[in-house]
Every structure is written in C-alpha cells, then in structure tokens.
Amino acid sequence: MPVQTITRKTETAKPKLAVYKFSSCDGCQLSLLNLEDELLDIVGAVEIAYFLEARRAEQPPPYDIGMVEGSISTPEEAERIRQVRRDCKYLVTIGACATSGGIQALRNWADVDQYKQYVYAHPQYVASLETATPIATHVFVDFELRGCPVNARQLLELITSLLKGRKPNIPNYSLCIECKRRGLPCVMVSKGEPCLGPITQAGCGALCPGCHRACYGCFGPMEQPNMDSLGHQLTGTQKRTAREMKHMLRMFNGYLEPFKQASDHYERQEKQNA
C-alpha cells in the first residue's frame, strides 16, 4: 500500500512532494498556494521537491506524492505522464482537467483542425492531439480530487491523510448533503433553477447555492447519479431544452461518465428536434 510507504518514510526523512502541470489553467496549483498558513505547515511536514509554479529549484525523482494538474492534450504530454507515473509512488490528479479532461475536452466532440484554423495564424506549428483526456486514461491514478478548481480544504485533507497514513475524508455523496448542512434553501425548489447538485459530488461546500445560484457540476458525477430523473425534472417541470441540458452537462466534466452519456443523449435529441 502506498499509504504505508509514505508513513514509514516520515521516520527517516520528510516525504517528497511533486506538483506537475499538464493542459490546464494553473487554478488548482494556485489553490495549493492559496492555502498560505497551512502551506507553511505542509512545508514543515513534506519536502516540496518539484513545484515549478512555486519555486525554481528542483530535486530529482523519485517522489512520494505526485500531484497532477491538467489533461493530456498533446503528444508530448502523453509521453511525459508515463515518466511522471514512474517517478511517483502515489499519484493524485487534482481538478476537473486531470480527472475528466476538463473544459478543453469539449474538443472531443469537435474537429480540432478546424479550431486550429480559427485561432492560430500558423496552425501547422500547433502539435495537439485530437482529444483532451483525463490522466487515468493514460496511467494508473491512486486518488482523484475533483473540482474546478479543487477545494483547498480537500487538498489539505488529502495531504494530511497521506502523511498520517489514514483514509482521506473525501465524500462521494451529492452536493445536496453539504448544501443542506449549511441550511441553504434549495434553489431548485424555491427558485426553479436547474441545479446539478443532486448528481454532483460534494466538496465545494455548496458555493453556488450559497450565492443563490444553481450548481454547475464542477465536481463531476456523485457516487450513483440518477441522470434520468434529474433530466426529467429539468426538461419537464423546468422546461429546459435538450441543448441547454447538453451544455450544462458538458461544461466542466462532460467527458466523465455518466455525464458524457447523458450529454450525448441530449445532443441526439437536439438534432432530432432541429
């Protein structure tokens, strides 16, 4: 068990932490840096051996904990992730990009070459894969932290639990559980908003319902999401169109099942309606 390895290591030297970036916006790495006070405690307990966003100095592998931000969207990244896996005992993906492909996975439903023509003056210099895929499509991942970006508390809990050699307290249940612990009046029920909370994994602390907004689903599917029932409510009672449904489901975690399957279903419906 990797957990035990890390704990044993603490007896002699501090465990080494590496933080990697693939195709991403750096927001999840910033969540780690934003921990500020706790970051000092983390620095006391682990050795930050590789974290280019935070410091230029690097130590050579192997590392005890590797945290990966971003999806695999270039041939170079597809190669590099294999080496990262070899270099880290315990590999954690942080955030929606690394875990589900992220926003850039929208290209998986589109023609990448066409996009390149629109955006770049010299598309021939852009080396990019047809798809943006989660890290787990390429290598074995030990733990996934969800969110766009990840929640700083969850990040801290993960590092702490690895150091202590215990199971991380990262729940897989619906966002509604967190929403109701905060006592927020449900935006579906009291406002008729299309909230993805009932199919989305908790972890953000019900940020959006706390601002009177519907959940966007940035933490991805919860443990056993009932896509059909929520879809029925949103397209039926709330009269959302198939197109709206597709967009909602694909926004952050569209490439993760069962959001993918459901969004494909609404895409077919959208075409039928057209």
Binding site: C176, K180, C186, P198, D228
Partner: peptide
C-alpha cells in the same frame, strides 16, 4: 427508484 435522486434532501430537512 427511477425517480429518487438519492440526494438526501428529504432526510436533511
């Protein structure tokens, strides 16, 4: 079971 989201709202309220 087809309709229930298993979201837990009922038990929380």
């Amino acid at each position: 079971a087809k309709r229930c989201l298993s979201c837990g709202n009922c038990t929380m309220v």
